[in-house]
């Protein structure tokens, strides 16, 4: 057992002695970033915030949420100044590959149980959603009812 450990130590030191040429190929100073150092902070107006909230539906229109967003925008602003004239956008790295075309055959579906399996609320094989996007005059009637409801609850 002693022999084994001695040999392994020797192996290690052999490697160490072999390596230490202190290669100069690895850079010795950190690189300067191309990003802009200081960017002006954008202040977002309330219309934009409420538009975003309606488009995202994630309840981020709190003060903290807005601040995080503004930080993200400032972060993104750091690279807008870099010249990209005459550069085509790279939408996908597979841009030189042709889109696969599938034969027109029925190969999927017919799995109603699988489709409905993970739904929390169902009604006789339908998914259930609250009402939405209905003509305005109906919505007005609805909102009257709603306000009545809310008032009652209060």
């Amino acid at each position: 057992m002693l022999n084994k450990s001695v040999i392994s130590i020797l192996n290690k030191t052999k490697n160490v002695f072999q390596f230490r040429c202190f290669s100069s190929k690895v850079p010795s100073i950190p690189v300067q970033t191309l990003e802009k150092k200081e960017t002006e902070r954008i202040k977002l107006d309330t219309n934009t915030i409420s538009l975003l909230e309606r488009l995202s539906l994630v309840k981020c229109d709190t003060d903290e949420g807005v601040k995080v967003l503004e930080d993200s925008i400032a972060f993104a602003n750091k690279i807008l100044h870099i010249n990209t004239d005459k550069i085509e956008p790279l939408y996908t790295v597979l841009e030189n590959q042709n889109l696969t075309l599938r034969e027109d055959k029925i190969t999927q579906g017919n799995c109603q149980a699988d489709i409905l399996k993970n739904a929390v609320l169902k009604e006789e094989e339908y998914f259930v959603a609250p009402p939405g996007n209905i003509p305005l005059h109906e919505v007005q009637i609805e909102s009257n009812k709603q306000t009545k409801q809310v008032k009652n609850e209060n």
Partner: peptide
């Protein structure tokens, strides 16, 4: 009572801060 409210509540309960702020941005 409305699709928008259901979606907003579901997505706020279901996602953590990181996910929500990325969606927003």
């Amino acid at each position: 009572y409305s699709t928008e409210e259901l979606y907003a509540s579901t997505r706020s309960e279901g996602f953590n801060n990181v996910v929500r702020s990325r969606i927003f941005a």
